[in-house]
Design a protein around this nucleic acid. Structure first.
Lengths: 215, 215, 215, 215
DNA sequence: AATGAATGAGCCTTCATTCAT
DNA sequence: GATGAATGAAGGCTCATTCAT
């Protein structure tokens, strides 16, 4: 309906072949907004512009839909990050900057940015999905940043620190920024939200400054 | 704490008038574990050792119980932090360290540490409670840290930075640590969790190093 | 509390010996207002100024209270009517008038006037009580009027009619008047209710005129 | 009536789109029998041959079902009465007779005759519905009879009386007859019920005799 | 006698899931 | 493939009833 505007004048009413994606997109919105349990499949179907029964043509159950939401949204993003790292030539500091801003541009700042909130909220209810997400997204993401930090240490660009902790210290603010947008900001609190790019920039600066080989 | 051991040591007799607190404690556990919508009041009652109807002697509705959980758990913690700041004499860096570790000891590391996860998950479903939490906890907490950073800048101990961003960069990792414990860690992922005190120590170090007046 | 004002200066706080009557009075009010099923015993107890538990000192169950309400309120009224008939000396028309107005003064126009509505509403749920009421109130009441009509026919004062039907034709309006007051009038409809005494007077007139030996 | 025998004679196939009417009919039966509060929606659904959830496809709540019961059953009846009056040519007495017997045939003597009992019982619990019923049924019904009586007075057929009171005196017995059938008669009391047509005939006779311009 | 906290069965209502069309 | 009516299990909440004090 309000989707991709490829309607031309032909009466191809709606391409049925990307029904699943439309459903997943609708489900993502609602799961992020209300949580898994409080989201009704009627609403998901309505938002995707289909009937409730249609949903079951593509997904076996509400839980299967949940898995699809998490899995579909997330795999390309990490891969892209890994590509960036592979291709990058330059200082580790610049790579970190690029990763942070890229993350925001491609993930945190888009509607996919709701996924971390969703996973944090539902991890304990869906350990299997959490396992998947942890392995395919979190660990791979952490490895990206950890590798970069380690590279900087090895090259003498950064002073030696506990890499895992350092990555936590950098990713924490990023994640919270995404979580915040989909919780307090979205509900009308935190009106005076800090502008994201500015916040990320300052955070990375602070982080890099903290890492700089002292003296 | 101060009421449990009374009435001889036998605990067969019905514990009397702190029912509300027991119910709130049980509800906190389950809300954090499953989320608001997925928590059954039967389970809350069972965990508190009472029947379902008893719950309604003390709380008008599931939502009222939710509010009580948030409100009751949180007010003393912030006040205590403010007390620490008022009484503190020493460097801003030391005060920040003390705030961070105090936060973990009194809040993040206890079962109260589940509240941030709960609030992030449910903020959009309970804007009123989110409002309350934002004003009474987040803003006051941020003010605590912001005041301390500002103090350090004014005294020349820290270099000038955007204070709000800096506070976000410090609190982000703390919050994520708490969130993580009650999501991925609690569901069996992230087994190799970083030891909290070590993580906090490293994070603060990094942060303070980043703030240090350069040169 | 707001009851009979015999408190003198002695600290006889409330005479407990007429607790049952207070409870029955409170129950009558609420049963008439809301019906049996929709009346809560908490409300009955509260209106009587006692706790809910106290109610069970006097009545075994909600149903027992219902029976007590019906039985207690009704026995004296019929007896009084029978007394009037026994003592009366005069025309049958005058006796009918007197019965009608007496009924209104002692029953229909008082709070007892709610009982017919209550019995009509609940007869099918409480066949035993309905049986009792039918025998002890309705049949005896009908007999009172029927005897009087018959007496008038026998004496030539009235023309011969089907006595049972005639009694129905006279009592119908009376009962409806009572029912109405406790249904539509009580809920704000039927604001322009006809003044009762006037209505009864006109009804009896019409009835007696209808009975008058034609010619 | 006109829809049951369709779809061949097999009734195994699910009857389709007059579900609402079937539900309303079932609800009328049970509301009249037990009262609103004591009627379980499970029973309503079972009597209509559907599951509990189905009920909520057609009615938002138990209260909405109640409103539908009252409103649906009642509108045609009054209209029909008004039609009779408009078309009638003859004496006012005959018109009254016709109205009374028509009322019984089309309303009081059918299952719709339970509605007055239901409304009397529940008026105070549903003031909005009572308002509606009062305006759309009672007032219009009263107007029908009042107009007829007035017509008789104007033409000299009846003696002058307070018209409103007279109407009350005539409708009272009719209403009570209907109420009675659905309360005491239905519960096994009042076994020796007077035959309705005979009772109505006698009542109208008495009434008309009472109205007759004396001498 | 009186209380009121506690209980648990029961009812209204919701919603994931199914299935005939 | 698509629909939407139908289902029934489950959960929030109420309230008659009990019982320790």
């Amino acid at each position: 309906m309000q989707t991709t505007a490829t309607r031309t004048e032909s009466r191809r009413e709606r391409r049925p072949e990307d029904r699943p994606q439309e459903l997943v997109a609708a489900a993502l919105d609602l799961f992020v907004e209300k949580g898994f349990a409080a989201t009704r499949l009627d609403d998901v179907a309505a938002r995707a512009g289909v009937s409730k029964g249609t949903l079951y043509l593509y997904f076996d159950s509400k839980e299967a839909l949940f898995k699809a939401v998490i899995e579909s949204a997330v795999i390309p993003a990490v891969a892209q990050g890994e590509q960036v790292v592979r291709d990058f030539q330059g200082s580790s500091a610049d790579l970190l900057r690029q990763l942070v801003h890229g993350w925001w541009r491609l993930f945190g700042g888009t509607k996919l940015g709701g996924i971390p909130k969703l996973m944090v909220s539902e991890a304990r209810n869906f350990p299997g999905v959490a396992q998947f997400y942890h392995e395919q997204v979190i660990q791979r993401g952490v490895r990206l940043f950890a590798g970069t930090v380690q590279r900087g240490i090895d090259s003498g660009e950064f002073r030696p620190v506990d890499v895992e902790c350092a990555v936590g210290a950098l990713l924490g603010p990023l994640m919270m920024k995404a979580l915040w947008r989909h919780s307090f900001v979205a509900c009308g609190c935190g009106i005076s939200e800090i502008e994201p790019e500015h916040f990320l920039e300052t955070t990375v600066d602070l982080f890099l400054n903290g890492l700089r080989a002292s003296r």
